[in-house]
Design a protein around this nucleic acid. Structure first.
Length: 472
RNA sequence: GUCCCCAUCGUCUAGCCUGGCCCAGGACACCGGCCUUUCACGCCGGCGACGCGGGUUCGAAUCCCGCUGGGGACGCCA
């Protein structure tokens, strides 16, 4: 029996949840689920000026859409201020922290000065040894870090990592407005909440020694750390808005399936032999920190598309219809309150799911089926609905009019008969009919289109097309 | 600049820990071909990588060192 595992995902609500964050959440979630542990959601909202309620809601919505469910939280740090003050008080009393009266401007100047001299831009600790009456004016609380010796932290993926303490400086624990800072609250919270494993982005690796020192000073046991590599854009730069839509919900709106996004993301930095496709359960069963790579990964939209296509192809139609419906409505293909059941919507899916990489693309291709009147592509009409093809269209129309019952076999036979009679190839009939029925040159199999549309709509579109040719 | 991390096809990766089975395997993309009523799907084939230099060893993608390159951190952001 392994010790109970507890992990957390701790986003800051200062913007949308992007896919790098989602992967971090996913790895934590998988780790928890694999080990039967707990997954905690914590909102790191100590940057009061930049945190927004809107971001929080967006993050929750994104996690819900993805099905990354949490067992505890969401905790909000701004609701735990009393606790942070208490800990700061302890540190101050124990002389492990001190008040610093340097202004932000002073600090800025000091940093610039250091940089000019080619030194590491860090606080020089001048208030640490200040004596006498505390000056008036705002102050921050800093954590005392001895410059002597080194500190090493153990990373589950990289082994021991050593840092020279002189690289560190006396970090701020509490701002002049009384709010706590990240490096401090993360330690207090992870300790208070009993977090056993901290799985987070690589960008936090150099924060870890500072936090480790805090754990030690507070007498808290350190959790186990695993720093996963970052996701980069095609230009190898850190992923940002410049690389297109990075907001998670934007992927939903662009027609990606949650399973697909997760499947794509899990393969960025984690692998199980040559396997590319993983169901949620497989991910959970197979996930392990041992098979994570430590090098950064470039986000590849083409591969995401391929994974998405795979899920569109294989997901049961009725289930797919549930994800598809909102997009059909948004695209104006189905009216709001259309009253169609998932089953009805799902009827076209078997004919389209081999032909679309996203749900949006599939919606556009389903227009002919859902919309009342055909929308013609001008070039297609000019090329295929001509005086030469009109008799073919009419020939098919009369054959189909007489067809009873209106079966797939009968439809096919009608096409064959017209083709034979006119002495043309099937394609010479199928293309004009395709344009007449769908307005496009590309569609599902022509027999399927006729079958999907049904007798009445097929005949009407055929005769409308023939009439259109006359008029033109 | 200083410190830290990383380094296999264009991209994601397997292999590396426990050297030989690897003149390096899979996937995406790309290029051919087949299938075909269109578009797709599918199938078959092709292109394509161990960053460089030293070492250790009978033997190195695998171990060690250096270099180079990329990323990250150095905030009263997280």
């Amino acid at each position: 029996m392994t010790a109970p595992i507890k992990v957390r995902f701790a986003p800051s609500p200062t913007g949308t949840l992007h896919i790098g964050g989602v992967r971090t959440a996913l790895f934590n979630w998988l780790f928890a689920r694999h080990h039967g542990g707990r997954f905690v959601l914590r909102i790191e909202d100590t940057d009061v000026s930049r945190s927004t309620e809107e971001s929080i809601q967006e993050i929750l919505a994104a996690l819900k859409w993805l099905g990354l469910d949490w067992d505890e939280g969401p905790h909000r740090q701004m609701q735990r201020q009393d606790r942070y003050r208490e800990v700061v008080g302890t540190l101050l009393r124990e002389n492990k922290a001190y008040r610093c009266y340097c202004s932000a401007e002073d600090l800025d100047a000091q940093r610039k000065e250091a940089e000019k001299k080619g030194l590491k831009p860090k606080y020089d600790g001048r208030c640490r040894s200040r004596t006498g009456e505390p000056p008036d004016g705002p102050s921050v609380v800093r954590f005392k870090v001895d410059a002597e010796g080194s500190i090493s932290v153990r990373d589950l993926l990289r082994g021991q990592v050593h840092f020279d303490k002189k690289e560190l400086d006396d970090m701020i624990l509490e701002r002049s407005d009384g709010t706590p800072t990240y490096n401090f609250v993360v330690v207090v919270d992870d300790a208070d909440m009993g977090i056993t494993h901290v799985i987070r982005g690589d960008d936090h690796l150099s924060n870890t020694p500072k936090q480790a020192l805090l754990y030690d000073a507070l007498g808290f046991p350190r959790p186990l750390f695993a720093h996963i590599s970052m996701i980069l854009g095609a230009d190898k730069a850190r992923l940002s808005k410049r690389h297109g839509a990075t907001s998670t919900l934007a992927y939903r709106d662009q027609g990606y399936l949650p399973d697909a996004l997760l499947n794509y993301l899990v393969r960025l930095g984690w692998s199980h032999g040559d396997q590319e496709i993983f169901s949620r359960q497989e991910m959970i069963d197979l996930f392990s920190l041992d098979s994570i790579t430590t090098s950064a990964a470039v986000f590849n939209p083409d591969k995401l598309l391929w994974v998405n296509q795979h899920y569109i192809k294989t997901m049961p139609p009725v289930e797919l219809a549930r994800h598809w419906e909102p997009l059909l409505v948004r695209e104006g293909i189905l009216a709001e309150g259309h009253g169609k059941s998932p089953e009805e919507i799902a009827r076209v899916i078997p004919h389209l799911n081999q032909r679309a990489e996203t749900l949006v693309e599939m919606a556009l291709k389903a227009k002919f089926y859902f919309v009342q009147d055909v929308e013609f592509d001008d070039k297609a009409r000019a090329k295929f609905l001509t005086a030469e093809t009109r008799p073919l269209l009419q020939g098919l129309e009369s054959r189909l009019a007489a067809l009873e019952p209106f079966s797939l076999e009968g439809i096919e036979a009608a096409f064959k008969a017209v083709v034979e009679e006119a002495g043309v190839k099937l394609g010479q009939l199928a293309q004009p009919v395709r344009v007449a029925l769908t307005g496009q040159t590309a569609s599902p199999g022509i027999y399927d289109v006729v079958d999907l549309l049904g007798k009445e709509r097929t005949l009407r579109r055929l005769s409308d097309a023939a009439r259109g040719i006359e008029a033109g």
